[in-house]
Design a protein around this nucleic acid. Structure first.
Lengths: 216, 216
DNA sequence: CTGTTTTCTTAATCTATGTTATTGGTTACT
DNA sequence: AGTAACCAATAACATAGATTAAGAAAACAG
């Protein structure tokens, strides 16, 4: 399975929760505990640094051109990161359903202006951790650094793999990749956004889908 | 200038040196000194860890599937990193003319099996630094860590920008981008490789080039 | 609940890029 | 030097995917 490049993001175990259902929020600690063992004190310390926030649909948390102060963990709902090209077209780099992390990784790490915008696709609840608090936590809980280091490495590999895929795969294959990586999103977000992610027009995605349906 | 994303790699100052000319090798220390100030002792320490190697054309230094032990600094000649897709087509991720660094960044950092192959395009001279020696140097010369951290961040941004470019630009624009990023390579490496980099067939690149020539 | 906006589908047409094949020119091998 | 292997150019033809347009369905806001 070439596409499970985000092991610590729990995309294999999580089930997308529609915003129309009552939300049962996983919190950051529960997710972290699945990957590293934490004492009660460490959990409390992390909790004290994390700010829980409710986000309305279309609300932006990372703005292009500004430094990304925070990395966000999605408790419920779904966010996306994208860049806008010179013709005004948006290109989606990543989706983040429940239990995924999202930010402009470069901006967050280097504390340089972001190239990306990060925005809620649906009403969502997220947990925010600032770069400063993150670095403080690394000092006090060294094993956390490993967790985030792997997260960053996966982000690097994921981006690189998508570049290679865009150079070598057809639109249909890229759509299948999307379905494997984000199974929970297929029927939950506008197709328009899926088209933006795989790099085709919404019209062409619609055509592909009817072809895929008929061939079954 | 959106494309100068490798500031510490000196691509703006370096001139590609043909392998047919006598080689005047810049060494690693000279390059590092341009970005951070080093004492005599620190220079000697770094020199003691760096192994200078001559590479014949087509010689591979990082093998897909094996852990990338080293990061390479190109003294003369040119290398490339690429991945091979399921149909046997090669896709070039990066070129490294003189004064650029190259490796499978993910494999090198995470010490996991590489997805990429790194190979000499022309007879080259390179300087190799192992991951272990690099980490030792970080302990003894902390400012080196900053230098390599920025290198890694630029690799992240560069890959991401290429992904966005492949989603939003035409082949002609991507060729122009290549020319800006690697001006020294345009007439020095086979066009076939340039085509692989920008993601078109060699035939189509040839067609584009005659169009560009006629339009001037 | 209703009018407005957004999204999805379908179809006709168009275009950028791929494919295949041929030719001639370089470079490498012995 | 001679042959093999590779590389660039060109052209005719093929196709994946874009564009445009229009109507239907869904989602949203007041």
């Amino acid at each position: 399975m070439r596409y499970l490049v985000y092991p610590v993001q729990g995309n294999d175990t999580s089930v997308y929760k529609s915003v129309y259902l009552p939300m049962t929020c996983t919190n950051v600690i529960t997710n972290l505990s699945r990957h590293i063992s934490l004492t009660k004190e460490e959990c409390d310390l992390i909790s004290s640094k994390v700010r829980q926030v409710e986000l309305k649909r279309k609300k932006v948390i990372i703005h292009e051109g500004q430094v990304a102060k925070d990395v966000a963990f999605v408790l419920s709902g779904c966010l996306r990161s994208y860049s806008v090209d010179d013709n005004g077209f948006e290109h989606i780099l990543q989706f983040a359903p429940a239990e995924w992390w999202i930010t402009d990784m470069y901006s967050f790490i280097a504390q340089q202006p972001a190239y990306l915008t990060v925005e809620a696709i649906t009403d969502s609840e997220i947990a925010l951790l600032s770069r400063k608090d993150q670095l403080d936590l690394f000092d006090q809980i060294p094993k956390l650094e490993r967790y985030f280091r792997i997260l960053t490495e996966n982000s690097l590999v994921g981006t690189r793999q998508r570049l290679i895929d865009n150079l070598s795969l057809t639109a249909k294959q890229r759509y299948e990749n999307f379905c494997n990586l984000y199974p929970s999103l297929i029927n939950e977000i506008p197709q328009k956004l899926i088209a933006e992610y795989i790099g085709v027009t919404p019209e062409f995605l619609s055509k592909m889908r009817t072809q895929l349906l008929r061939s079954r």
